[in-house]
Computed example of a mutant assay.
Amino acid sequence: MTSHQTSQTMKPATAAKKLGVYLAATPAEFREGVVSRAELNAFQADPPEWLRELRRNGPHPRPVVAAKLGVSISGLARNGVTEALTTEQIEELKREEPEWLRRERATQAEVRQEAARLKKLREEKAEAREEARPRS
């Protein structure tokens, strides 16, 4: 018997998320169809012009906006940024650097420091357990 392998497909929203683009800004044929794993791989390996343009100028989904601004998605929401932003809008926010952005960046830096501290602590505990383990 031979096994028949079906093509794995995903909804356009899932594919857009994996590609890091805002679904509403993608072409209609992308939004209205399904995307196979092979198509997704092709988009990643050799992006069409519309995908390159979206990645370059946006509008960008909130996770991308948050990363470009150096804040969390929650930080965006706390400060009323709930819509996709273009690269130009993101750059303008960076230039203006409003108080909320400075505050959220500081919060994000603290979160990263705490995560690094906890990771180091876990690693040290694991090493101590390994050293304390009897050798045979």
Rank of each mutant, 00 (worst) to 15 (best):
V35C: 04
R103A: 12
L93W: 02
P48V: 05
S136Q: 11
H60E: 10
E110Y: 04
E83K: 14
K94Y: 00
R78Y: 03
T26A: 15
G33L: 08
T9N: 00
A115N: 02
E114G: 05
L19F: 00
E29W: 11
R52H: 09
R95H: 01
A109D: 04
M1L: 05
R31F: 05
E97A: 14
E97F: 10
R31A: 03
V71K: 05
P134N: 14
P27F: 00
R62F: 03
G33V: 07
E29T: 12
A16D: 10
A13S: 09
W100C: 04
A84N: 04
V35G: 06
L121S: 09
N79K: 06
H60F: 15
Q5M: 06
R122C: 12
Y22N: 13
P59Q: 10
E97L: 14
A28P: 15
R112N: 02
M10G: 01
L85V: 02
Q5P: 08
R56E: 14
L121V: 06
V64T: 14
A115L: 13
P134Q: 13
A28R: 15
R78H: 11
T6D: 01
N79D: 04
E99I: 00
A126G: 09
K120V: 13
S136T: 12
E49M: 06
S136A: 11
R122K: 15
